[in-house]
């Protein structure tokens, strides 16, 4: 990892606080609605964090702030010690969109799609550097995309499409990858596959993953940290410590309606 820091020109004193360092973040939409309120969030390098919350809880807003796409928030937000938009322009933080929202009729192949991740970094009129392409080749291997690399994106499965989007996000060699509703529209088997691939990616490339979802069930297994967001952060800890009481408060339901959380019965969350 030190090699990567030299690449981005980050000194070690900056990264002491971890990959994400958010202090007192609040954001109000132009219409005056409070979207995020006084959020404190520290994420250490290499951790997988799942942020869960109901629709309208500010999950997308939080992602946009972390990507440096929103200005006008209060509080401080640092990614690897940098301002988010700086981190985004350097390819230190990247993003995997909800794959079901994508227009798959555009005529590009899987490898072309993955290479688009390097466009902002390469600059105009430049060829993509050899080392970046070699790295992307390794990403494609780990994600098992080699055999579909030359296929148009309209002719691959949903799971392959999602892996192609993950490959695109990994192409600029980021420290942090944000995933928007990664489990949406995927069946239980597909979700388990995806978790396996994300673990492989982490082992191989040492990235920090932050997943955002409204689907508590899909997020619980194999996440190292869970945060519950409903305008403000209600909980941020190990998944085992998450109680039905916290969830009922965040999701506005009674504890009886969420019987699958808590350390003791996590094994039975997925009926198989």
């Amino acid at each position: 990892m030190p090699e990567r820091h030299r690449k981005h020109g980050i000194s070690h004193e900056h990264v002491e606080g971890g990959t994400i360092c958010v202090e007192g973040l609040s954001y109000r939409y132009p219409d005056g609605t409070q979207a995020l309120e006084d959020i404190h969030l520290h994420v250490m390098r290499g951790v997988t964090l799942a942020v869960i919350g109901p629709n309208g809880a500010g999950k997308t807003t939080l992602l946009k702030v972390l990507l440096g796409l929103l200005s006008g928030y209060t509080g401080t937000v640092k990614i690897e010690g940098l301002r988010p938009e700086q981190a985004r322009h350097l390819g230190i933080v990247t993003w995997v969109p909800q794959h079901s929202h994508l227009n798959t009729s555009f005529p590009i192949t899987v490898s072309q799609l993955a290479r688009l991740g390097l466009v902002g970094k390469a600059g105009i009129l430049r060829r993509l550097p050899r080392e970046d392409l070699d790295y992307l080749g390794r990403v494609m291997d780990v994600l098992k995309l080699r055999q579909v690399a030359d296929r148009p994106i309209g002719r691959i499965s949903g799971g392959q499409m999602q892996r192609a989007l993950i490959a695109r996000a990994l192409a600029p060699r980021p420290e942090l990858v944000l995933l928007d509703e990664p489990m949406a529209g995927i069946d239980a088997v597909g979700q388990e596959d995806l978790r396996g691939f994300l673990e492989l990616v982490k082992a191989e490339f040492g990235v920090t993953l932050v997943m955002v979802s409204h689907d508590i069930r899909a997020m619980l297994s194999r996440s190292q940290r869970i945060a519950c967001l409903d305008r403000t952060l209600h909980f941020h800890d190990l998944p085992e410590k998450l109680t039905p009481e916290v969830l009922s408060e965040v999701f506005h339901v009674t504890p009886a309606e969420i019987p699958f959380v808590g350390g003791q019965n996590r094994g039975s969350e997925e009926p198989q």
Binding site: L67, L69, R88, H89, G91, T94, W95, P97, L102, N103, F106, L116, G117, V119, G120, K121, R168, P172
Partner: peptide, 9 residues
């Protein structure tokens, strides 16, 4: 994918 293009610089 205009949204992603913006995110990727």
């Amino acid at each position: 994918d205009e949204e992603a293009a913006e995110v990727f610089g």
